[in-house]
Design a protein around this nucleic acid. Structure first.
Lengths: 220, 220
DNA sequence: AAGTCATATGACTTGCAGGTCACATTATAG
DNA sequence: CTATAATGTGACCTGCAAGTCATATGACTT
């Protein structure tokens, strides 16, 4: 966390510094962010930077707390419409409120999500080609499912593809993260418990996609 | 793509080099991978490296093709059980076959997915704390939904949380990626079209979680 | 005015990255 | 055996990163 020296700074100067940091992280992610550039763009000296913070991770950690703070602020006078929503409507409201916030502070959101959710998304050029192939397979599959009457034909194909893509990614990430902790990955993957978990995840997706009906034609 | 010189190399030497590269990417991701280390660990000289490849991106691109190749090889004699599965069963088979492959070549899978799906997951220490808070909120919500009878009580809470987490991440990523292309993000986010898309995504999740029934008690 | 303490500075150190190149080694051809 | 081409080598270059530190500034005390 930032040192006292930083917290003593006039609000305006602090703001300049964190703006520069946000911009840096949004553009380069955490690993590739450069303290030199942050320093340059915020008009302070190298020495000062290290008088304020431990290192760039420290700045980032601080950013998270600022984000939390600003979110609180942003939401404190916003409440979900109509008294008692059910859990799913409440979740929907939450997600949308989050979107509103993110679009109000896009650079901030980008900086944080870039680090939290991965830099891979930003290589576009190099990887989209590879990704595209996967997408095409999914698209083919979902179109086939529609033809076969397994899925409501009014479904948004692009959306269904995104769902499938999200799932496969989530599953591989899960397998790799959990699996790497095991002494015998193969055995773990084949275990009834793991298989059941994957089955359940896929059922959630499947039922979500099958049950489309009226909701998918109108808007909400 | 690698230069001819590399392709002329004896199989064994090539293997050593790509193994070193896989290990490097698995450990450090693409940005932080060091050609120096790859060279060291594969026992070739710096000069040779640059005689074989343009740069490390080139190596990575090559790795993707190797992966594709090996996957083909691995699957060519594997076919989904029982002649004609419906699309969802086929998808399930595909996902599981992919898992099998990944656990047979875990370092390879890790190297690639780390770059494709993001390095953020590997900061563990720094970010899990922040992530944990989100997880707890979701857990609370899903437990509440069970109490209220909105969700099958036999549902696996941990799994439901993972689903919710996956979705919120997928949605923020989508919003930030698409949104940054717009001239007015806020307007775009609020547009009926975007809102509808998000609603649909959330419905897919909601129905998936609601419709649990028998499938969720047994194991497939 | 003199002294003291917090703050600010940027030249400098160290370390490692990517990439080059003159030269050494080995294979191939005539 | 020699000439020519292909392959291999590692010292060396430049560039930029993180982090340090002797020194300067200036505000506040007595």
């Amino acid at each position: 966390m930032p040192k006292q020296t930083f917290l003593n700074l006039p609000q305006e100067k602090r703001q300049t510094i964190i703006s520069a940091a946000v911009e840096e992280f949004a553009q380069f992610g955490l690993e590739n962010a450069s303290t030199n550039r942050i320093v340059e763009n915020s008009g302070i000296s190298k020495g000062s930077f290290y008088q304020y913070f431990e290192d760039k991770q420290d700045v980032f950690r601080y950013l998270l707390t600022v984000l939390e703070q600003e979110k609180m602020n942003h939401f404190k006078d916003k409440h979900p419409p109509g008294g008692n929503l059910d859990t799913f409507n409440y979740f929907r409201w939450m997600v949308k409120a989050g979107m509103e916030f993110n679009s109000a502070y896009p650079r901030m959101a980008q900086a944080v999500s870039r680090v939290l959710l991965g830099e891979g998304l930003y290589y576009g050029k190099l990887l989209t080609e590879y990704h595209q192939k996967t997408i095409q397979v999914f698209e083919m599959m979902i179109k086939q499912a529609i033809e076969r009457g397994e899925v409501d034909p009014s479904i948004d194909v692009e959306l269904a593809v995104m769902v499938m893509d999200t799932w496969t990614n989530a599953i591989s990430t899960y397998i790799l993260n959990e699996g790497m902790k095991q002494k015998d990955i193969m055995k773990w993957v084949r275990s009834a418990k793991t298989q059941e978990k994957i089955d359940k995840l896929l059922y959630v997706m499947e039922y979500g996609l099958r049950k489309t009906e009226s909701q998918f034609s109108g808007s909400m």
